[in-house]
Design a binder for these strands. Structure first.
Lengths: 253, 253
DNA sequence: CTCATATATTTGATATATCAGTTAAGGCGG
DNA sequence: CCGCCTTAACTGATATATCAAATATATGAG
């Protein structure tokens, strides 16, 4: 239908900028705005636990620390709230979100559901060159292990999963996984690095890749579930860590 | 790192409101703020296609229409952008997002992965009373069909899936599904209501529920996939609808 | 008449000001 | 000394003002 509330007839130039689809192929809002900078910064600080769960998040302090006004800071905080990383209590205060205990196993279950599909489809569709790319990533894992570089190891790990989703033809799967796993990432910062984990992870990734290369969806799914299932165990026991960092319920999102 | 910028030593009352976890069990930010009202309203208008894909979204017009300032309107629009319902082109304009063509099948695939797990777990854990509740929901579907009430039918449909996720023990699954399916919902508004769809949907839901009641995870998963797989077909053929409402690429999240 | 440039306008991004609800401390009465 | 009420300070929510980039329209040269 038309539209037009009431007197908008003469007000609308009609042919004026009706579609940003010509020269702009995609990717709106990519500019490095102040707000997104603050958001990225705060997000990183929260995920890395530089800011402790339950800790108050003073808008004013952030404002001063970064030398910007409250508007972009507020924008960043609102987005963090949508991501479940901060809790805003309307006229009371804003706090770094506690890690939702039940939300952890839920996140892992969801991730398994998503990445099982990812592995299956990747196994069905993988081309030879794609397999080689992923093999290179696994090699990066080995190099990172040898160098004892945990950060590089983690980066390659994530790259592996992202690439698998891409091979499956649905990169959105990895985007969703990233969204879901964020609280688990925070949790893992609290636990001591397990001995031999890197070696185990490398072997699991190689097993997944082998199944994918062999175009064996069932086996790929099996190894993926085994790989992620290990998380379940580590997530189940929340003792020995500060219980003040946790909240009972799970997040709705 | 530690924390404490510089001169905060004497500034921090330390024992002042350090955790809103005592009297506030959960649910931060539930207040009906102006911003969330606008957001809900705009969201509804976009999903119902009252606002057409590609249409400009004038911040000023909304401001005047609702009699509020630009701040809450902007806040609402930013959230819509995060949800993928609007595209913001920084110094150019804001537009109702086009429906991502490839994103549709991706959304269905993701939904199948999630709800298959949902159905499986529900079948494993269902109690008798839970089954009865869901059977009542299916009955609501039949009543809505008889009354020809599409809105009620749709509401009961969603309630069915939400309840299944709850039975599975992971309500977050449904929350995720809702987030993912939103573009599909928009797409379906564009297509004519198919003859006999209601009847088919009822039967599929009943089949899922029967499998759940029989504690047969594999069969529950099978019927759930069959149920959602029907979406794939309807999503694949995007002809006969205004191609101007669609965008080529898929969305990130 | 066509095209390039200049100007005016629109818009989102940011800064600042104001408002109202909440919290916690302080004072008053019991 | 204890409890209720008042008050003061703080916070997030909203309103308003300003800024700079991008687009459209007007304008003038060719």
């Amino acid at each position: 239908m038309g539209s037009a509330e009431e007197d908008s007839a003469e007000r609308r130039p009609l042919n004026r900028r009706l579609a940003p689809n010509s020269g702009n192929p995609a990717a709106p809002n990519r500019a490095p705005s102040v707000a997104s900078t603050i958001h990225a910064r705060l997000r990183s600080e929260i995920v890395s636990l530089a800011r402790k769960p339950g800790e108050p998040l003073a808008e004013k302090a952030i404002t001063e620390a970064y030398g910007v006004s409250r508007t972009p800071v507020r924008e960043a905080i609102l987005r963090l709230a949508d991501e479940g990383l901060v809790d805003i209590f309307p006229r009371s205060g804003t706090f770094v979100a506690r890690i939702p205990q039940h939300g952890l196993s839920e996140a892992v279950v969801i991730r398994m559901a998503l990445e099982e599909k990812s592995a299956r489809l990747a196994a069905e569709r993988a081309t030879r060159s794609q397999v080689m790319v992923v093999q290179a990533i696994v090699e990066q894992l080995r190099e990172s292990q040898a160098a004892g570089d945990q950060a590089a190891f983690h980066a390659a790990d994530e790259h592996f999963h992202a690439t698998l989703a891409e091979m499956a033809g649905y990169p959105g799967i990895w985007a969703l996984v990233q969204q879901v796993k964020i609280q688990v990432d925070r949790y893992r910062r609290l636990t001591l690095p397990q001995e031999g984990r890197m070696q185990r992870v490398i072997e699991e990734h190689q097993a997944i890749l082998d199944a994918v290369a062999a175009h064996d969806p069932d086996r790929a799914a099996l190894h993926m579930n085994g790989h992620l299932g290990a998380l379940i165990a580590s997530v189940e026991d929340i003792r020995h860590v500060n219980p003040d960092y946790f909240a009972g319920g799970g997040h709705g999102d």
